[in-house]
Design a protein around this nucleic acid. Structure first.
Lengths: 213, 213, 213, 213
DNA sequence: GATGAATGAGATTTCATTCAT
DNA sequence: AATGAATGAAATCTCATTCAT
C-alpha cells in the first residue's frame, strides 16, 4: 500500500494534468487525489496548496521549454527557432491542463526562456530564414497564440496547431515590407508575465482557502 | 432604482463583462448584480443560470462577429477577409471576460459565421490576396490563435495582437509552396465547437446550486 | 420560513453561547447554525468569520460589564464596587462559552471598564469599605480569578463563585498591614489584554480557514 | 538519535508542555514530536492518544500538588496551608499549557489531594491562622481561581497571582462574621471534577482520528 | 523500537440559486 | 417585478492516528 514518495509526486502531477485537462483548473483537489490513487493528505504533503500544484505543472512546461530552446541552439542553418516552436507547441499540447496559468506567473524561467529565444532568432536571421524586423517579443507572442489554438482544439484535433504554425512561419520569412505595427518592448512583455488579473475592487485572484479551528 | 426590463438586461451584460474581465469567469453573480446596480433576483429573472449569462455574453460576441463578417463581404478588392479578421479581433479584445467560453458552445451562430468566412475567403483568393491552399477552417483557427494572444496580453498591451496579425496575414499571402500540414475538415471543426470539457468520470461541469428550505 | 434578520443575529448569538458552553470554542460553526435553526450561510451573512462571532459574544459581556460598572457608580456608601463585582460575575456565569477569549482581545472596551473600576474603587476607599493599598489592577485580576472559578464550576455548581467572592471581599476590607506583593502597573495589565499567545515559531493563533474554488 | 524509552517520555512531556503553553491545547501532535526531537510514531508509542498525553501532563501537576501538600503537612504553626497554596500556584504557573484540563478529569488524585488539604486546613484552624467557617471545598476553589489568573496573566506578568493570593489569605484569616454564602459540599465538588463538557446532543469531545487504507 | 508518509473525517468558508417579502 | 436573506453543497486545507519500512 505504501509507495515511494517520489513516485507519489509524479502520480499527483500526472493526475493533476489529466484532471485539469478534463475539468479545467477549477477541478477539485479531492478529484485529483482520487485519480492519483492517494488521499488528499498526501497531495497536501507534496504540494502545500493547490496553487503550488498548478505552479509545479507550469514549471514542468517552462523547464521543458527552456531545455528545448537550449537544444535548438545547437541546430545548424538557423533552423533552431523553427524547431523550437514546433517542439514547444508539441509539449504544450501534452500539458493543456495548466496552460491558462502558463504565462501568468512571475518567473525567472520566463526570462531565461526569452534570452534563449533571442539567441535563436539572431541565428535564424543570420541564415536569412527569418525576416529582419522580427523581434524576440514577437516570438513570445507566437507562443501565446499557439496556446490559444491548443486549448481550443486539443481534445478533438490534437494536431491542429501544426498547420497554423506553417502559416505563421511563412509569415516570418524574409519579406520586402516591414510589419505595419510596432513590436512589444521587452518590458511590456515583462509586465504581462509579472501578474495579470488585478482586482476590480480589492479582491485578489486565487480565492482563499480554509483552516480548522 | 426601478428601470426598464430591457435596460436591466443590458446593465447586467455590461456588468458581467466588466466583472468577468477583472476576476475571470469565477467571479460571483452577487458581484455582477452589485456592479449592475440590481439585486441577484433580478439577475436570475433575466438569466436562468450563471451559465446562461455567460452564454448571452458569448452570443453578443458571436453575433457581432457575424455582423462584421457580413459587412466585410461588401468590401471590394477581396480585402474583406483581412478587414474581418482585424474587426473581429478588435471586438474580442473588448470582451475578454467571456473569451474562455467563446469557442466552446454548441452554437448555430458558429455555423453561420463559418459560411460567411468561406465567402470572404473565396473572394480574397479570387483577388489573389490570399494563398489558394488556405481553407475556411484555417481562418477559424486564426480566431482561436488571436484569442490566445488577447487573453494573455489584453491587460497590459491591448494592441499586441495587431502586429501578430500582420505576420499571420503575411503568411496567408499567395506563395509558391503549399502548407506542409493538412487542414482541418469542417466536421472536425464542428466537433471542437460542439462541446469540450466532458467529465472525466461522470462529473458535470457547472457547479450546482441550492434550493431554499 | 423566512425570519427577521435581527432575530437571526440574536438566535445565532444565543446558539453560539450554548454550543460554546457545551463544547468549548472548538465547537463547529455547523453545529451552531444547526442549534440556531438556520443554515451556515446565514451564520456567515451575520458574522464574516467564526472569530467575529466569538468577538460579538465577548463584546456582549464587555458591554454589559461596562453598563453594570456605570450603574454601580450611582450606588451610595461606597458599596458600588462590591455590587459591581457581584453583578459582573453573575453575568459572566451566564456567558461561560466565551470566557476563554474574554480578557484576550485588544479592546477599548477594556480600557473603558478600567476607568469605571478606578472610580468605584476610589469611592469605596473614601467610605472605608476597602483597604487603601488596593489598586484598580487588583480589581481587574479579581475578575480573572472569578472567571477561573466560573469556567470550572459553572456546570455543576453555578453559584460556587459567590462564596469565594465573600472571602475575597473580606480580604479587601481595610487592614492594618499592607499586602506583601506589589500591584501590577496599568501598563502591565494593558500588555496582558493587548494580546497573549504569541507563536512559538511563527504560527499565529487562530488556525486558518478554507475557501471554495 | 536513539534514546532510552523513559527518556523519550520525559522529552515528550517537556515538549508538550512548551508547545501547549505557546499554542494552546490545539497545538498539533506533530509539532510536539518535532520539538521533542522524535517522530510522531514514538509519541504514539508512549501515549496512545493526544488526550492521554494531556492527561499525563495533568497528572504531573496533580502529583506534584499532592507531594507539595504532603510536605506542607510537616510545617509547624499551622502555616502549612498557606505554604501549600503558594507552592501549588507557583507550580501551576510553570505548567500553564495544561491548565484548561487540570480540574476536568475523573481522577482519584484529586481525592487524595483533597484529603491532604483537609488536614492542612484543620491544622491551620487549630493555630488560629484561618477562620473557622472555611471548608476544604473553599480551598479547592481557591485553586480554580488561581488558575484563572495564571492562565490570563502568565505570559506578561508571571507573578501577578502572588498579590491576589495575599488578598485571598487576608480574607481567610479568622473573622467576626461568617461568610454569607454556603460552602460547596464535597460531593458537589466531586461532580465538577468527574467530568464536565458533555455533549449537547450526542457529540463527543475529542476529535476522532483516522486509519490508513 | 522508531520513523514519518499516508489517510480521510471534519473544519471553515464561498457562492449559485431560491423565494418570502 | 425586484430584492436580498437564506440555503447547503462543495471546495480547500488540517491533523489525530495508523502502519509499512
Amino acid at each position: 500500500m505504501r509507495r515511494d514518495a517520489a513516485e507519489h509526486r509524479e502520480q499527483l502531477l500526472a493526475a493533476a494534468l489529466k484532471v485539469f485537462d478534463a475539468h479545467g483548473l477549477d477541478a477539485s483537489v479531492t478529484e485529483i487525489a482520487r485519480v492519483a490513487g492517494v488521499g488528499v493528505g498526501t497531495l497536501y504533503r507534496n504540494f502545500p496548496t493547490k496553487e503550488a500544484l498548478i505552479d509545479a505543472l507550469v514549471h514542468q512546461v517552462l523547464d521543458a521549454t527552456i531545455t528545448m530552446a537550449r537544444e535548438a541552439t545547437a541546430l545548424p542553418d538557423g533552423s533552431g527557432l523553427e524547431h523550437f516552436l514546433e517542439a514547444s507547441a508539441s509539449y504544450q499540447a501534452k500539458h493543456v491542463g495548466c496552460l491558462p496559468r502558463l504565462w501568468d506567473t512571475d518567473l525567472e524561467a520566463v526570462t531565461t526562456a526569452r534570452a534563449l529565444i533571442a539567441l535563436l532568432l539572431t541565428d535564424a536571421k543570420k541564415h536569412h530564414r527569418i525576416r529582419k524586423d522580427l523581434t524576440p517579443t514577437d516570438v513570445s507572442i507566437v507562443l501565446f497564440a499557439l496556446r490559444g489554438i491548443i486549448e481550443t482544439t486539443q481534445e478533438r484535433a490534437p494536431d491542429a496547431w501544426r498547420r497554423h504554425l506553417d502559416i505563421l512561419i511563412a509569415g516570418m520569412r524574409p519579406a520586402e515590407q516591414d510589419l505595419a505595427h510596432r513590436a512589444l518592448t521587452p518590458s511590456q512583455l515583462n509586465a504581462i508575465v509579472a501578474g495579470s488579473k488585478r482586482p476590480l475592487d480589492g479582491v485578489t485572484r486565487p480565492r482563499n482557502g480554509v483552516r480548522g479551528a
